[in-house]
Design a binder for these strands. Structure first.
Lengths: 299, 299
DNA sequence: AAATCTCGTTCATACTATTTGAACAAGTAG
DNA sequence: CTACTTGTTCAAATAGTATGAACGAGATTT
């Protein structure tokens, strides 16, 4: 027979109590049973763990070392059982979370970090996507939570609004649209290329707590280099606006849009313990950002 | 019944092969045996690991998570068995090593580090002691190896000589013995306090790979502060001699002594695999120091 | 669509490992 | 010297596990 956890449990108990008899009491087994278990372990390892020459059986040097090794195995097995217990209590084994890249990622990352630090069984999988990708991932890949600017709500979902954010219509400082200080009409706007990130980035298997980034960064880069104009979230371009590397396009129908980020989940599958905890953590992080802005972006 | 390794082995094999039948082939057991094992695991965990609604049983989300946890347990148990195998092959469970603090500790520490990096089962216990303490620990505490300047060899021991080192008779620059540039006689010398480290430092239980330091440092400090004169190893006081914080005492019978460090073990218990490996490592380190001195002390 | 395969469960049976208490040997305490 | 404790060994009892046959349900083939 192969190694068994029971043999290790016996070994551990004997070492802790210092005798077969005492260990037997703890394990509610006859002394002879422990004797049997130890002997079978010794046989399978082909090692002598106890010195029987003495009256009270004492561990050999090898035995002492192996007790420690045994405990490492037992610790792992306890973790296994604890994980199982958590799952039994309803903790989700996996929590897939899709974030719209337009949303400020600072608090999201902080929440992820904080959540991981909570030693929760749940594997958190975070994917950052753009535009239609967000909903697509939520629906097709069966994510559990989505943080999006999407307004649709088909009744199958519930959402929790977060503090609003702004999108600004901007272009590079050399772009024709911003050369003169005059209002831009729709037809004028449509003469130029609009830069939007929407490529469906190839998505392989997500290993636990992995992140995938979509192309918002490329979009910003494109606008910066003057390839075209585009809607970008204010928090991502504060520096560029200040340095006048990006300039607001004075579109007559509006160059500023308020959008409400929402945490969305399916009505059919309400958030479990991990999701709830994660949402709370995220809200905390956002509160901290809104109330006491520690970042330059705040002013 | 409690959790068993066998259940975890079954779970692992099923996941690896993708089916009960294939796993059964690997484990040389009937499919029904695996079915039984899985069910008993599920019962004890009170969790469903496989979805039997489908034709080929597929892991549930919980199951997938627990397979990974199970593997961690199995890895640990494999380490346990590997440790046992090493012990069976004759590797010492423990290797106690006493070092004379007068000897250059650089290569000793390097050897310890290197040895630990070898992933050897053996627990290395290093104690640094002074003068009589060295032999005392070797004999009373039953250390396996000793690195000493001791010359005694009562026929029960074998020793391996290492490159020689020097002890110098020195005193602080303000000490009366070194105020004039004249030779010092024995009677003169005996008028002053000789500083020697020899206190039997209290020694508690040594946990694995722990170090205990004796009082050579205090001795050096005492000589430096002018409390008295003393014999100190050159490698420890090169800097002080250069800065003239310590000065050689021109004792007429000699102020320089060559001593041969030796690695000693009992004839009765020749070095096992770990001890042999450790001695080799130590010799390598010393070779490196002697041949290609990378240290300022070398010039 | 029918026949055939494959997969996993269930069941009764066979087996094997473990448990038990009693008997024993050897050491310890009063 | 006696009473007690400790751990081993043994035969018998027990509980857990393995097995192949029977089965149902999906796939695959023809």
């Amino acid at each position: 027979m192969g190694l068994s956890l029971d043999q290790l449990r016996v070994l551990d108990a004997i070492e802790r109590h210092g005798s077969f008899t005492a260990a037997g009491k703890e394990l509610r087994r006859a002394t002879s049973a422990l004797s049997y278990a130890v002997r079978s372990l010794e046989d399978s390892l082909q090692l002598t763990l106890f010195d029987r020459a003495q009256h009270r059986a004492t561990l050999t040097r090898e035995g002492r070392l192996l007790v420690d090794e045994a405990r490492k195995v037992l610790e792992r097995s306890a973790e296994f059982e604890q994980t199982a217990a958590r799952l039994r209590d309803g903790w989700e084994p996996r929590l897939a979370f899709v974030v719209d890249g337009l949303v400020p990622l600072g608090p999201v990352m902080a929440a992820v970090q904080s959540f991981v630090g909570m030693q929760i069984v749940t594997r958190l999988e975070v994917a950052v996507a753009s535009y239609r990708e967000v909903r697509k991932r939520f629906e097709r890949d069966g994510a559990d939570l989505m943080l999006t600017l999407d307004e649709e709500d088909d009744g199958n979902e519930r959402s929790l609004p977060l503090p609003p954010m702004e999108l600004l219509l901007v272009a590079g400082v050399d772009h024709p649209l911003v050369q003169e200080q005059r209002r831009i009409s729709r037809s004028e706007l449509e003469e130029y290329i609009e830069i939007a990130a929407s490529d469906p980035a190839a998505l392989g298997d997500l290993s636990p707590s992995q992140f995938s980034f979509s192309d918002l960064r490329a979009q910003r880069q494109a606008v910066l280099q003057g390839v075209g104009f585009g809607w970008l979230p204010r928090h991502l371009i504060n520096d560029e606006l200040r340095d006048r590397r990006l300039v607001i396009v004075p579109f007559e129908e509006g160059f500023r849009v308020r959008r409400i980020p929402r945490i969305v989940h399916r009505r059919a599958t309400p958030p479990g313990p991990a999701a709830t905890r994660f949402i709370e953590t995220l809200q905390d992080e956002i509160q901290q950002l809104v109330r006491g802005p520690r970042r330059r972006a705040g002013r």
